[in-house]
Write a protein that binds this DNA or RNA. Structure first.
Lengths: 117, 117
DNA sequence: TTGACACATACCCATATCGACATATATTCT
DNA sequence: AGAATATATGTCGATATGGGTATGTGTCAA
């Protein structure tokens, strides 16, 4: 069984750096394909293909405007990813807590030493 | 150029559902490989291979305990993913805001109508 | 030491990928 | 109608994938 298609879910779609870049650009506002080609430095066909993937997983929508196509992010599709990753948030928060605790412990110890001098 | 290796970054590593499942299991606490095999229903070699990928991107760490290997999540590697996705949070929040605004607008209109009857 | 157990690695195969390049489709302009 | 422009699609090639199965490696137990 090969790797799951990039179009199978947002996780796979977003695994590709260029597609993340495109989404970032679109997050700042709608853009036409040509504008994305210019901004990314990619060849036009690759941009179109990346956009196709993003469309198929519902991360962007396209609107025709004359001969141009204006693309818009549909960040809603990223909520699934956000929610999944958020389940692990407490784990690195815990780690931060421990660092904080150690820091406070060290500070207390330092005060003790200073007091006893 | 083929798709980027699954080991190239957390985004690619986490694109595979089985690996997400393994991470979820480990999020609840350390586990040995055999336990993961049982929990996932995967064959042992595939579990080992998925764990290898997760190790290579730093999402898990392994500790030898006799002939067993105990795996632990290292959620820190997921922060990058979390931070990236979080950049889009305002976009779906906005959408929620608009829904809320429309609801309030509708409620106001309804009150006006009621008042004028 | 020999065997049993836990895990890792090696190999095979069918498949989807991404980039490059060529070409098709659709729209606007003259 | 024909040319120019904007975007989409098709083809090719090299490559990494993930499951299956077989085998290697290390550890414990008798």
């Amino acid at each position: 069984m090969p790797r799951a298609p990039t179009t199978s879910d947002p996780f796979n779609a977003v695994a590709e750096p260029r597609r993340r870049e495109i989404l970032e650009l679109l997050a700042a506002g709608e853009r036409e394909v040509g504008s994305l080609v210019e901004a990314t430095g990619l060849a036009q066909p690759q941009v179109s293909k990346h956009l196709r993937v993003l469309r198929e997983v519902g991360l962007v929508t396209a609107r025709a405007e004359g001969q141009r196509r204006v693309y818009t992010v549909n960040a809603d599709g990223l909520r699934e990813v956000h929610e999944w990753v958020s389940r692990f948030e407490r784990l690195w928060d815990h780690k931060l807590d421990r660092i904080k605790q150690r820091a406070e412990h060290a500070a207390r110890a330092a005060r003790e030493i200073a007091k006893n001098q």
